[in-house]
Amino acid sequence: MCQTSQHEHKHVENVEVVSNVEIAPRVWMVVLRAPKMAHLLRAGQFVHLLIDEYLTLRRPFSVCQIRQDEICIMYAVVGKGTELLTQKKTHDESMSVIGPCGNSWPHPAVGSKALLVGGGLGAAPLGMLAHELFEAGTDFHFIQAGRTDSLVIGRGFHESIRRDIEFATDDGSLGFHGLITEPVKNSLQSGEYSVVYVCGPEIMQRAVVAVCANFQVATYVSLERLMACGIGACLSCNVATKQGPQKVCVDGPIFLSEDLEFDDVARSSIH
């Protein structure tokens, strides 16, 4: 298995809002016209968006889909920045983005099969990975979970990846009734997977990593941290790894789970 893929040469691009709609309770999707960024971004990377000139800091967002010159971002409304983002109107709003930021998910070796495990909004960037794997002809299975069916946000991804997605919900309103770890365990018992890609709330990622450890399968997690610069300078997004302190913004956001000191991850996660 190759290590996570590093990319260089970030740039700043002024992007135009193509659409911006609420797709689930408190979850929105904004589509930005960003011709240069769209052609450089790889699944797992993020963009650092200046939502409003009156904010002091940019906000990092993962990308869930590329459509020619456009990038699609699913976001939960969690604070002042994302509240302001919901107010951006189509075509008359321009924003500055820095990107592509961070590393991307490495693709598995030819002929091997991947398991994609997305919890809540974490399914969004995995949607882009699923599309990349589909285009590359790599076999994979995609499991998504959420608290309830309306919060399983990547249900529509099956169209572009032309395969069924397996679901799990806490309340049983869609797919398996219970935690995502159960269908993950069931899949891994087949022994056909060589790599697992997981993205979602950190507590869910930790639980999935614990399951994967029993099957000795390489597992990549995707971490989220508050960050100021997004380009490796400010050290806000520090994470402890077995190789020493690393930065989520440039060394991540994708990490091989066995490289992380997960106790530290729990302490410093976003609440």
């Binding site: 002091t56 800091l57 002042k80 920045g81 400010c234 050290l235 530290d264 410093s268």
Partner: peptide, 20 residues
């Protein structure tokens, strides 16, 4: 030096707090 644990920044009105 390892720096500080926990959240290291937060945005406030017209500025930010850091605890790197």
């Amino acid at each position: 030096w390892a720096g500080n644990e926990g959240a290291r920044i937060t945005e406030v009105s017209s500025g930010m707090l850091n605890s790197i």
